[in-house]
Design a protein around this nucleic acid. Sequence first.
DNA 1: TATCGATGATTAAACGATTAATCAAGCGAT
DNA 2: ATCGCTTGATTAATCGTTTAATCATCGATA
Lengths: 361, 361
Amino acid sequence: MARSGPKLTRIARTLGVSAATVSNALSGKGRVSAELAEKIRATAAELGYVPSLAGRALRTGRTAAIGLVLPDIANPLFPQIAQAIELAASSAGYGVLIADSRGDVTTQTKAIERLIDRDVDGMVIVPRRGTRITDVGCPVAVIDTPSTPGNTVAADHWGGGRQIAEHLKALGHRRVLVIGNNPASNVQNDRIGGIRSALAEGAFVETLWIEPLEREQGKGCPLGLAEKVAEGFTAFACVSDLHALRALTELQRAGINVPEKASVTGFDDLIWSPVVTPALTTARMDMTRIAAIAVGALVKAIGERDPTDAAIGAPVTADDAEVPMQLVVRQSSAAPPRIQFQPGQTTANARTSAPEGEHQP
Amino acid sequence: MARSGPKLTRIARTLGVSAATVSNALSGKGRVSAELAEKIRATAAELGYVPSLAGRALRTGRTAAIGLVLPDIANPLFPQIAQAIELAASSAGYGVLIADSRGDVTTQTKAIERLIDRDVDGMVIVPRRGTRITDVGCPVAVIDTPSTPGNTVAADHWGGGRQIAEHLKALGHRRVLVIGNNPASNVQNDRIGGIRSALAEGAFVETLWIEPLEREQGKGCPLGLAEKVAEGFTAFACVSDLHALRALTELQRAGINVPEKASVTGFDDLIWSPVVTPALTTARMDMTRIAAIAVGALVKAIGERDPTDAAIGAPVTADDAEVPMQLVVRQSSAAPPRIQFQPGQTTANARTSAPEGEHQP
DNA sequence: TATCGATGATTAAACGATTAATCAAGCGAT
DNA sequence: ATCGCTTGATTAATCGTTTAATCATCGATA
């Protein structure tokens, strides 16, 4: 209720015109003379007029609010996403309502329903791994991965995987262990696909899935990376910085120095990545751009939509659905130990990227 | 606009009564006979009636939405907080609008203004370190620390500090380095105060502040913990798990095994705490309870407030402003190395808490 | 000069709910 | 039988904005 501020009628009365004229002048819609419009804008600004969203919503059927649905709000990416979406939305004049789904599917449905009941104009959904977004009854932007059908916009996870892989290859790694969490995740599969494709010739790649392993051995169980090192693996390419962190500390704990004896890479450039020792090499998404595209497409769809009609179909589409990832090289990746080098390899090139100090045996 | 769903009048027409009666029946306010009320509720449920928030907001001046303001949305605690607040708010019938302030003070003010312009009924603010909440013009619940004036509810950070300290003391630690980020933070000061107070007799405590150090030596600089170990420090009590992680990896990297040669503790039980090796000993806040109290107090204040009056004064108060923290003992804390033990110490007791394997020299 | 069009502003209805004021009916007591 | 009170429901106003329809004015055209 615009906290006791001036209403439209207040401005109208002040200038001796009708409320409709004020509305027209401010929205630039009806027919208002230039000078009167200017005068109206001036006094509106002077009085600090802020339109009542409630009044407008009632009349137009638009609440100027969008919902943000994340599968797992405990996801460490959440801050990045929320921040980016909020920025994009607020500069487009939209508010952001959050919906928690605690990973649970039924809870997610409930959360979406609550948003609908609140009459959001649209929603941004980062779907839970593998979940298909059912028709929700308002425009929806989906941020998942380019290979997902119905995806609106996403980082080029595959390309990010390629970049990580190229980086490791250039350093001289030939036996790489890819560490993922759950094979049902589209994002993870794309990242891994990218890694494998870039490493296809001349390198051996194996994949370790954490979640199945933990179902067997219990949460937080060791991943057995020391054994993998013994098997000749020199690099651990993790599908998220969280797993990279896990790998890093497990290796360190086992006395395997990173990056001298083994390299570790992650994804997403999460908060701790630059802070740990050694700082993590990772691939970052351009969340600001992704959010801008998602919200842009959403707002466009909202504008084109007749607010009185009911459900609409598929998620909205954007012109630019694929945003490149950026490789961030830090200290957790370097050339593999000498003994692992294959004959004919350009060791010189690889060595230059290795951090100073702590040389290998 | 309750997406093409049935309106009040629709129910009224179906039953041949007036809209006012339906409204009264549903809200239980006016005078409606029991059987008619029941019939109305039944058909409302059957038709799937959802009241239009916009219509209601316009009439009552209540939007049933609250704002959530966090100083730094990149804060890794954000997911926990947001999740808890959202849960508490939604079960009280409120939606949660997020406001990003990117750490910046002016941006924070802007964000708060946007929330006001959106007519939130109240807001929950987790203030930036040291910031006093100016009068915002709607009820406000502040979550900071019990010692902050104007605080509504918070974890007992001091008590959490004491628990960490008691734990370390019981393990036998006598030289403890406390690691904080910024001395201007109320929360950090309380945590450190608690630690120091419990360690006052019979132990030596020093505090290391990261932010000042980084201003000198650059972001991500080493904290020099190996030197501290050489100086005889056996435990590093960090004011956040993020710093604990930094300390842990720096120590591991320097070849100092945790917890055999040095213990590391954190705060907040962040996402990675159970996952790293060794898993972090930490102190957790009961965010669910804190959020419930904050939102409860807020909702109460909203209910008592006359929606037409303007600014109100101080933040709302709650009966129970101090929620105890919970010590979570994991593998990163153990008895200090033998050589550090003071004569007359009950080493047996301390040893029992130490993890098996990897014995000290 | 009467008419047509364009221009600039006003009127009034509508969005969907809440609520104070009003009204009708039933019943007990005077 | 009438007055007054309670009960149960209706009427109508209201919140603040938007917008279709209307109206008045003036200049130009026939």
